[in-house]
Amino acid sequence: MSEYKAFRVELADKIAVVTINRPEKVNAMNADFWTEIIDIFRWVDATDEVRAVVLTGEGKHFSSGIDLMLLAQVSSKLGKDVARNALTLRQTILTLQGSFNAVDNCRKPVLAAIQGYCIGGAIDLISACDMRYSTPDAQFSIKEIDMGMAADVGTLQRLPRLIGDGMMRELAYTGRTIDGTEAQTIGLVNRTFADKTALLDGVMEIAREIASKSPVAVRGTKEMIRYMRDHRVDDGLEYIATWNASMLQSEDMRIAMTAHMTKQKPEFAD
């Protein structure tokens, strides 16, 4: 496992705990963040021992979003030619999108544990996760509208599938801040926990439960859920039939059924 500048990564009980580690900068997403998160999730995908990921932020806040210094660096590259500026900006945006696509495309379930600020780019990030949990006093805001721009790294594409189109539009058009309690009400987070300690304990417990299941079954379940975002029901039924034609032959299924009948805890290979 590599050493990172913007993150801290730990592996325990088959769970990778990925912590945004810039608390002195409110965990703002600097240049290191955008490149390192791709490397981290490549490692997660390639490491069979990892069964689930918990993504959180060091200190009081999850993340305040994109680092303004990074935006300044991008602006410094722009010149007088509109076409060349457009090409530069477009490539930058696509590169940033790729960082969160790495989270979305991860074969392992990713659970976000959110406290304090979750603003701007941080909403893009948690939208790419499988599940989200927070403290009641967490603060969520699609802040880009107040910066005179449209969110461009995934919020407007992924969030309608999580909280519905109308609520997403309200938050995106107004930029208003909601707390963890309202976030749970609208379905942005699954559950709230009293404080950060309870949050991490609770999310780790859920992650351990997922990690105890067949990794073949978890992989297939996530793949089918992701596939159905962009396909018809009959396409999805065809895909799962083809997928399970091989996966139902897994040794995990025999182990799971034996454990169920003998009322014992199953142990699955990585």
Rank of each mutant, 00 (worst) to 15 (best):
M1A: 13
Y4W: 15
A6F: 03
R8D: 05
A12F: 10
D13P: 06
I15E: 06
I15M: 07
A16W: 00
A16P: 04
V18Y: 01
V18H: 01
I20G: 02
R22N: 10
N27I: 03
M29P: 02
F33C: 07
I37P: 01
D39Y: 09
F41L: 06
W43D: 11
V44Y: 05
V44Q: 04
E49D: 14
A52I: 00
V54S: 03
L55S: 02
G57S: 04
E58D: 15
H61C: 03
G65Y: 03
I66A: 03
I66W: 00
I66E: 03
D67K: 08
L70Y: 13
Q73D: 15
Q73S: 11
V74Q: 10
S75I: 02
S76G: 14
K77L: 12
G79Q: 12
D81Y: 09
A83L: 15
L87Y: 04
L89I: 15
T95P: 02
T95Q: 07
L96Q: 05
F100H: 11
P109G: 12
Q115F: 03
Q115T: 04
G116C: 03
I119C: 05
G120D: 13
G121A: 02
I123N: 07
L125V: 08
I126P: 01
S127H: 01
A128E: 02
D130H: 10
S134V: 14
S134Y: 05
P136V: 14
A138G: 13
A138R: 01
Q139G: 14
F140L: 06
S141L: 02
K143V: 02
D146I: 06
M147Y: 15
G148Q: 06
M149P: 00
A150E: 09
V153L: 07
L159V: 04
R161A: 10
I163S: 07
D165K: 15
M168V: 14
M168A: 12
R169K: 11
A172L: 06
D179H: 09
T181K: 14
E182R: 13
N190P: 03
T192Q: 08
T192P: 06
T192D: 02
F193N: 09
K196R: 14
D201M: 13
G202C: 09
M204A: 06
E205F: 08
A207S: 05
A207P: 00
R208H: 02
I210L: 07
P215S: 04
P215W: 04
P215L: 00
A217W: 09
E223P: 02
R229I: 11
D230Y: 09
D230G: 09
D230I: 09
R232A: 14
D235W: 04
G236P: 11
E238W: 13
S246H: 08
S246Y: 05
M247V: 13
M247W: 01
Q249M: 12
E251Q: 08
E251A: 06
D252R: 00
M253R: 07
R254V: 08
M257C: 09
T258P: 03
H260V: 15
T262A: 07
Q264V: 13
K265Y: 09
E267T: 09
F268A: 00
A269D: 10
